[in-house]
Design a protein around this nucleic acid. Structure first.
Ligand SMILES: [Mn+2]
Ligand SMILES: [Mn+2]
Ligand SMILES: [Mn+2]
Ligand SMILES: [Mn+2]
Lengths: 217, 217
DNA sequence: ATAATTTATTAGGCATGCCTAATTTTTTAT
DNA sequence: ATAAAAAATTAGGCATGCCTAATAAATTAT
């Protein structure tokens, strides 16, 4: 079995690999895990020895098939537990991520599948991210950033790219959740911020960072 | 927050403290945790520094109030998760202990209480052990060992003192679970074994160890 | 009381996973 | 092309938690 730390690295590398193009460097992994590039280099050696990744200074880190399988299993458990925490235990969507970071490391062969069944085979987690299926397949979701929607158009929130408490609390305050309709009123060229309208509420200005953190479908 | 290892030591010391009389020595803790007395001595120092226990070669290890509180919280989570795994996820009663050993270390202030509520405030876990309440109170259960019941009498299984897969599988095979009625037919003085009858099944002989591992009410 | 045995403790070590500080390599700017 | 900056790596260290082997202390048996 893999350690918590190894699983966290695999998940980090997996997440980074979704952003495509960008090479997965020690620095980028360190940023993702809030640790030090020197520590990352240590761990990349271990993961390479265990054939969970390949690493090449030029090409960066890449999950092997074995590594991908493990990473997806961890993500699957993470997202299923998030559904459990929200739907069954009644936690708020800003609280669940931290607890799921712990629960994703519980090891038992049948656990993910039993949990999946118990929850009614949910397709998405509470942040709008697709839950990998038992066979490892993940619904490929082609989503656009809120930032890319043209003024005058409306859209519906499909997922959040940031699961920090600060961001989710802010969304809560604005009345924004998965499925919420948002109308883009205007874009401010100066700083990339945008004026939006959530449902029938007053128009508000949100930052570029905000626009990049919401995916719409 | 405490580490997994610290919590495991506290739980071990707590368990040993229930057997009363016996002094809690490094050797007994090492046995409980399947590790080495030398390792235990190391950890007893750490736990003493953190004021979770007191340790004295003469008197052995003793949980402080703070240590007791933590130990009981861990036990509470352990037993609640066992109920969850059995009742909600459909695991067998021999599978749940190992998974609960992992789940008991998930940290979140509200977790135990939310889980408790979700499960309908169960009083006992699937092995018949009382689940500590939110205030730390534990139903004191005065139970007798099956071994102590006199021939001719019947009794009802209240709890199992051993949660090993081997024992629980054996019980499964004999059709014995919590609540099962057992009639004591005869006691064999030679080796302390006993002849019992489970429900209307054939009479069988079970060992002294068996008789010591079942509590009846 | 003395010897044998068991228990507790110390000493030294190892693996994991992190760190800082130095050094080397690579990239970017001038 | 050279200098400056950034990124990667190495070296050395530290905390945790475990181990074995050696030693000291306490029990038990003779
Ligand atoms: Mn999450
Ligand atoms: Mn999520
Ligand atoms: Mn248990
Ligand atoms: Mn139990």
């Amino acid at each position: 079995m893999h350690t918590f730390s190894e699983e966290n690295y695999l998940r980090a590398i997996y997440r980074l690999s979704l952003d495509a193009k960008a090479k997965i460097s020690p620095t980028s992994i360190a940023e993702e895990l809030n640790n030090n590039p020197a520590s990352v280099v240590d761990m990349l050696k271990k993961l390479t020895d265990k054939k969970l990744i390949s690493y090449d200074k030029k090409k960066g880190a890449k999950l092997t098939d074995k590594g991908t399988k493990t990473a997806i299993e961890v993500v699957r458990k993470h997202r299923l537990w998030e559904v459990f925490l929200l739907e069954k235990l009644g936690y708020g969507w800003e609280e669940i991520h931290d607890i799921a970071e712990q629960l994703e490391h519980i090891h038992n062969d049948e656990l993910a599948d039993r949990l999946d069944k118990f929850l009614g085979f949910p397709d998405y987690d509470p942040h709008g991210d697709p839950i990998p299926k038992a066979n490892g397949k993940i619904a490929t979701t082609y989503k656009t950033m809120l930032l890319e929607v043209e003024p005058g158009n409306s859209c519906q929130v499909a997922a959040v790219k940031d699961t920090s408490v600060a961001f989710l609390h802010y969304l809560e305050k604005l009345g924004v959740g998965i499925g919420t309709r948002i109308k883009i009123v205007e874009k401010i060229a100066f700083d990339g911020s945008m004026v939006i309208q959530v449902g029938k509420a007053d128009k508000i200005n949100v930052s570029k960072k905000f626009g990049e953190s919401i995916l719409v479908g």
